[in-house]
């Protein structure tokens, strides 16, 4: 009698749990669209609003596509007397692929341009303009959420939003590291000259008498010395 009552209580509790799970799963899916449109909270707090007066001539734009992938493997790391031994845990796999599109722009900063960077010949016919070094900045990055794919085994949880943004951020950083090999520098220099020469020619100079140079022919080796404090700006 007592055992029968206990069995019935357990069955009832189990049924309630199953019912709650079903309600939680289905209710969210049918009302998502309405929920997003009608319950998005607009927060008007000004978190950061930084306005800066600039004088930048953007001369080259590169659009770079990358698929950021990550295989989440849990390792059991044993350290014994300074030696590390890793063993893969059989908890199931988690993999994710995130396509991202990054826009890089190279620019010449004219805010410090002055007369010392202009040289004229004695007869005034020829002009030599020494431009500031080009810089590269990430102007935008976009995650293709529709094409993002993740695969998780039954024992593992889905990737969180924080994890995905971390991988996206790593992906953009890896693109920045490859900037010296993209050729954007040379494109920026040629485009700057192509923009300025007609402008200077309209001042009365012949295009053949206009020379545009840059301060230094930087190479990849100079990159570590010239990283700016601003996160997305790489100086060359």
């Amino acid at each position: 009698m007592h055992r029968e009552m206990k069995t019935k209580r357990l069955f009832g509790a189990f049924s309630l749990i199953i019912l709650w799970c079903c309600m939680s799963c289905t209710h969210g899916q049918t009302s998502t669209e309405a929920a997003i449109d009608s319950t998005v909270v607009e927060d008007s707090v000004d978190l950061v609003l930084a306005v800066a007066r600039t004088s930048r001539l953007y001369t080259a734009e590169y659009r770079v596509h990358k698929i950021v992938t990550h295989s989440d493997v849990k390792l059991l790391r044993t350290t014994l007397l300074g030696h590390k031994f890793d063993t893969k845990l059989s908890l199931g796999d988690r993999k994710i692929a995130i396509p991202i599109d990054v826009t890089l722009k190279a620019y010449v900063d004219f805010s410090t341009f002055n007369e010392s960077q202009i040289e004229r010949s004695a007869d005034g016919r020829q002009i030599h303009i020494i431009l500031p070094d080009p810089k590269v900045v990430v102007t935008s990055s976009k995650v293709d959420h529709e094409s993002t794919k993740q695969f998780t085994d039954i024992l593992r949880s889905d990737f969180t939003d924080a994890e995905m943004t971390d991988y996206t951020s790593q992906g953009v950083r890896s693109i920045l590291r490859s900037v010296p090999r993209l050729g954007i520098l040379e494109t920026a220099r040629q485009s700057a000259a192509a923009t300025l020469i007609p402008l200077v020619a309209s001042m009365g100079y012949s295009p053949e008498d206009i020379v545009v140079t840059f301060r230094k022919n930087y190479t990849e080796a100079d990159l570590p010395l010239l990283m700016d404090n601003e996160r997305s700006v790489v100086k060359f």
């Binding site: 969210g28 009302s31 998502t32 929920a35 997003i36 319950t39 998005v40 909270v41 927060d43 707090v45 978190l47 950061v48 609003l49 930084a50 306005v51 800066a52 007066r53 600039t54 004088s55 930048r56 001539l57 953007y58 001369t59 080259a60 734009e61 590169y62 659009r63 770079v64 596509h65 990358k66 599109d101 722009k105 620019y107 890896s174 693109i175 490859s178 993209l182 954007i184 494109t187 040629q190 485009s191 192509a194 923009t195």
Partner: peptide
């Protein structure tokens, strides 16, 4: 990384505004 496009441009920037926005969504 795959370069999708390379474009020579001539855009002169006079003002840049860095902004942050807090976006919130709820599912009842």
């Amino acid at each position: 990384a795959q370069i999708r496009s390379i474009e020579r441009i001539g855009e002169w920037e006079f003002l840049s505004i860095a902004d942050e926005e807090l976006i919130d969504t709820i599912r009842h």
